[in-house]
Simulated assay, not measured.
Amino acid sequence: MKLTTPQPARHPNPTTKASALAYLIFDRPDLEKAEWFLNDFGLRTVSRSESLLLLRGTAASHFCYVVRKAAKPQFAGFGLRIDNRAGLDALATLPGASKVERSPLPGGGYTVQLTDPSGFRVDAIWGQAPAGTLAHRAPLAFNSVDTAVRINGTQRPPERAPEIIRLGHVVLELADYQQTCAWYTQHFGFIASDVQVLPDGSPAVAFMRLDLGDEPSDHHTLALAQGFAPTYSHSAYEVVDADAVGMGQRILRDKGWTHAWGIGRHILGSQIFDYWQDPWGDKHEHYCDGDLFTADAPTGIHAVSREAMAQWGPTMPRSFTKPRFTPASVAALLRNLRRSPDLTLSKLRTLAKLFA
């Protein structure tokens, strides 16, 4: 397979390099309902007021999920942690960027607020105070055909919501794929681990990792997919092992939440996964056992298909990628077909044939 477009490609001298996905920001009309789902999913409440809900995992982060009270439910954006003040100052010089400001959220630090070419808010954050970790259960020990590690013992994972360790990645759909992908590689140093392409060689999905040099990084922290309008696809949260993924499915099913896809193992990234919808239909993924790459690993190019999304488990259901057609989304489709160089009727037909 061959990529026939300029992006995704490594930038030789990015403005700065992101070192972590810090948090996601959602607007919700009902904070209580949002908290109910997220607690059942395994996130822990840090604080809740009439206008703001913050949640975290067990990893060393003050919070990883921000919910703002708002009339319209939507995904607003996310925060990227960077490791030096010089990078923050450089980002503040970009068109449309805010000044460097103190963060009012737990952990403090300094932020620059930007807007990517697709309209998503991106907070660059530096200088947060260190955060402590929370206790979580150890991974279960497995007896294999070659090695017995558990004699005269049993496996009994606790029957409760799985402990989210950390926020792992976020996936966005875009109309302006080339411009948006270039913005993240140029200004935050993202590297494409794998790219899935359409028959014409244009990208359908790019799985982007952080450039941490010789330090291993998740296969993807940000994934960008060609769509007809900018929208949130899903976010993913690491749990300690496959039993936590399975227990999460049992707990969420018993609580009456809506299942989206799983359990299975991805091909690109290799995660064992399970997806669930929150009260507004937005997908949240439990995962474990993801791939890790250093900066020198090359980009893989692969054909895209529904079957190429998982090694085992159910084939990705068509409902998983089915767009939500509303008057606003139809208007966005027509508008983007006229103005976006990345969107054509032919490409839409191809995507619909593959996924719709």
Rank of each mutant, 00 (worst) to 15 (best):
E173M: 13
T344V: 01
A71Q: 14
S305F: 00
L53A: 09
I267F: 04
K17V: 13
Y23M: 07
P29S: 11
K69H: 15
F188M: 10
G127E: 15
I301F: 14
F188P: 09
G108P: 02
D274Q: 04
G269L: 14
V330N: 01
R306E: 02
A352Y: 01
F207I: 12
S49P: 09
L140P: 03
Y110W: 12
R44S: 03
A175E: 01
K255H: 11
D274G: 02
F190N: 13
F320I: 01
F37W: 01
L198N: 00
L343Q: 00
Q155G: 02
G153R: 13
R335L: 03
L3Q: 01
C181E: 11
D342V: 02
D116Q: 11
V145D: 13
S49G: 10
N84P: 00
I125F: 14
F273I: 08
D176T: 06
Q196N: 15
G213R: 07
L174H: 02
N13P: 00
L345M: 06
G256Y: 09
Y110G: 00
H286F: 07
T294F: 07
L222N: 11
L94D: 12
M208P: 11
S47H: 03
V205S: 00
M309Q: 07
A242L: 11
P104T: 13
K17S: 14
Q128V: 06
Q113P: 00
V112D: 03
E50Y: 10
A308Y: 01
A161M: 04
M208R: 09
S329Q: 08
Q179M: 07
T45V: 12
